[in-house]
Design a protein around this nucleic acid. Structure first.
Lengths: 290, 290
DNA sequence: CTGCACCATCGTGAAAAGCGATTGATTCTT
DNA sequence: AAGAATCAATCGCTTTTCACGATGGTGCAG
C-alpha cells in the first residue's frame, strides 16, 4: 500500500534533486528519506531515481516519473481534502432546516441572521411545511410544535400560550373565563398539530366554540378578526406585532400552551453549523419569552 | 497527515456499517479498525461515526461524510496510480527511438515487430535523422554509427564492413586491393559520420578515389551503380538484398568497418520497454552478422 | 591523492500498528 | 424481567515501522 507520506518525500526529492536537501526541507534526516524512497521502490518494483553518485543531482527514472506524476496528483487531492475538512469545521458548509409558519415569522429571522454573521460562507436552506407528521429525512434540524417518534431527539424552545384575539372593546380587558368560548364564533388554524390538542382540551370540558373559518395563514386569520367575523383562538406568537386594531386576552384557566421544539434525528452528531444553530435558537427563544 | 490505509478503513466501515465487518473484509481485527478510526477522528478533529450501540449499524457523521467523500476520491486515484504503474511495468507505455537509414532498413523492422508482439499496447515512436552529432534529448534509445560524448552510454551492435559495389563483370571476382580505388570514379554517401572516417583512412594511404556522386539514399546509390556511373563504396548493410544486377567485392586490406551502436543517456535506468528493446536489438544484430 | 558532497547501510530507541481478551453498552428474545 | 446476542472501546502485549546518528562507499574537483 502506497502512503501519502512516502509520496510527499518522493516529490520533495524530485524537486530538490537530492535526498539530503529533500530531508531538510521536510524536517527529516537524510537516512530517513533514503529509507522512505527504498520502501517506495520496493513497492513500485524498481528504482525511482538514478543516483549518479557524487555531487550530481539524482534523476528520476521512467518508472519514477510514473509514480511521481500520480503521486503529485494524489498529494494535491489530499490538500483539497484538508481544505475541505477545515472549511467544514469552520462552519463553512450547508445546513437544512425544517420550519413552520410561526417560527418562520418569529424565531427564524434572527437566528438565520446571526448564523450567517457567524458563518459568512455557509449555505442555509429552509423547508416550510405544515404537517402532523414531521419528516426529518434530509434535514439537519426541524422546528415543530410537539414531540414525535422515538428516533428523534428534541430541545424544548418555548411555551407559546393560547390567547383570544379580538377587536378592541369586544371583550372586557383582562383574562377571559374559558366558558365564555362556548358557542362563540371563532376563527382558528386548521385542527392539526397543537390546534387539535387545544380543541380536545375544550371539548373535554364541554366547551364547544363555533369555528366559522379556518386558515393556515396568520395574516388571514387576523384580517378576519378585524373584519368582525369573530375572535381568533390562536397561539400568542401567531400575532406578530403590537397592533392597535387588535386586543389580546389571556384565558383562565389557561389552555395548554403550544410547545415549540427543535428536533433532530436521534443519535446524530451535529455539524458545527447545526450545533451553533441549536444554540442560537435556544437563545432566541429565551429572549422571546423573557 | 492523513494516510491512505486509514481512509480505506473509513470507507470499508461506511460501506459495511460495522467496525467488525469492515475488519474482516480488510483482514484486520475489530480492535485495529477501532483504533484506525480513532486516529482519523483525532486528525479530523471530531467523530466520524455515530455509534448507536448494539446491533444497529454505525452511521457516518456530517464531518465523516466530508472526510469520506474526499477519501474515496483519494482511494480511487491511488488505484489509478497502481494501475498506471502496473501497466508501465508491463511495458504498456511509450518508447522514443532515434535511428538512421541503414538501421531502419535492416535491424529495426524485426526489432519493432518483436517489441510490438511482446507489448501489444505500447507506443513506439521513431525519429530518423542523419547527423554527425546525435542529440539524445527526448529519446530513450538511439542508433548511431559511432561512439560519442561522455554523457552517453552505448552498446556495440555490429561491425558493418565496407564493400565495393559494382556491376557484375566490372571487376574480377574476389577481394579487390585497396590501391585500385585510387582515381576510380565512385558514388558514395555524403562524407559525414563514418563515411568521413573511411575517406580519411584512404587519404592517409594516398588513395584518392574520384567521387562523382553523393547521396544519402541507398536506393539512389545503387541505381547509379546499375546505371554505370561508377562503383559504390558503401557499408555492406546498405545493400539490402541479394541482387543479381550488382556484384559485391570485399576490399583488401579491409577498410575500418562502420560500427553500429545503440546509445542512451549515461546512467539512465531504462523502462522495461527500453530494456527489452536493447535486448532485441542485440539479438537482431547478432543474427545479422552470424 | 585528498577533500567534498552525496547516498546506502547499520544499530538503536521510540512510535505505531496489530492482535487477543475483556469490558460495557444496547438491542432482541424469551 | 432476564438472558442472549451484537458491537465498539479499551487494555496489555508483541511485532513492525519510523526516525535518527554514525559510519562507510562513491564519484568528482582541486
Amino acid at each position: 500500500m502506497y502512503e501519502l507520506r512516502h509520496l510527499a518525500t518522493l516529490a520533495a526529492v524530485a524537486d530538490e534533486g537530492s535526498f539530503g536537501r529533500a530531508a531538510s526541507r521536510l524536517g527529516y534526516t537524510q537516512s530517513s528519506v533514503s529509507q522512505q524512497i527504498a520502501v517506495l521502490e520496493k513497492t513500485a518494483g524498481g528504482p525511482l531515481f538514478d543516483r549518479p553518485g557524487g555531487p550530481k543531482p539524482v534523476r528520476i527514472t521512467p518508472l519514477g516519473a510514473v509514480v511521481l506524476r500520480h503521486g503529485r496528483e494524489l498529494l494535491r487531492r489530499a490538500d483539497d481534502m484538508r481544505d475541505g475538512i477545515e472549511r467544514f469545521r469552520a462552519g463553512d458548509s450547508r445546513i437544512d432546516i425544517g420550519t413552520f409558519q410561526t417560527v418562520s415569522n418569529t424565531l427564524l429571522p434572527r437566528m438565520i441572521r446571526e448564523l450567517r454573521d457567524a458563518h459568512p460562507g455557509c449555505d442555509i436552506r429552509l423547508f416550510e411545511e405544515e404537517t402532523d407528521d414531521p419528516d426529518l429525512t434530509g434535514l439537519d434540524l426541524m422546528f415543530f410544535d410537539g414531540r414525535t417518534g422515538d428516533a428523534i431527539e428534541d430541545l424544548k424552545l418555548l411555551d407559546d400560550p393560547y390567547v383570544l384575539v379580538a377587536r378592541p372593546g369586544d371583550f372586557p380587558a383582562g383574562p377571559i373565563p374559558l366558558e365564555k368560548l362556548d358557542g362563540l364564533p371563532l376563527v382558528a388554524h386548521p385542527a392539526i398539530c397543537h390546534q387539535a390538542v387545544v380543541e380536545g382540551f375544550l371539548n373535554a370540558r364541554g366547551i364547544q366554540p363555533q369555528f366559522v373559518f379556518r386558515t393556515e395563514g396568520n395574516e388571514a386569520l387576523l384580517a378576519m378578526v378585524r373584519a368582525g367575523l369573530g375572535a381568533a383562538l390562536a397561539p400568542r406568537l401567531a400575532v406578530l406585532r403590537d397592533d392597535e386594531s387588535l386586543a389580546l386576552h389571556e384565558l383562565t384557566p389557561e389552555l395548554p400552551p403550544r410547545e415549540i421544539f427543535l428536533l433532530w434525528q436521534a443519535g446524530r452528531t451535529h455539524s458545527p453549523l447545526a450545533a451553533h444553530a441549536i444554540e442560537l435558537a435556544r437563545r432566541a427563544a429565551a429572549d422571546l419569552t423573557g
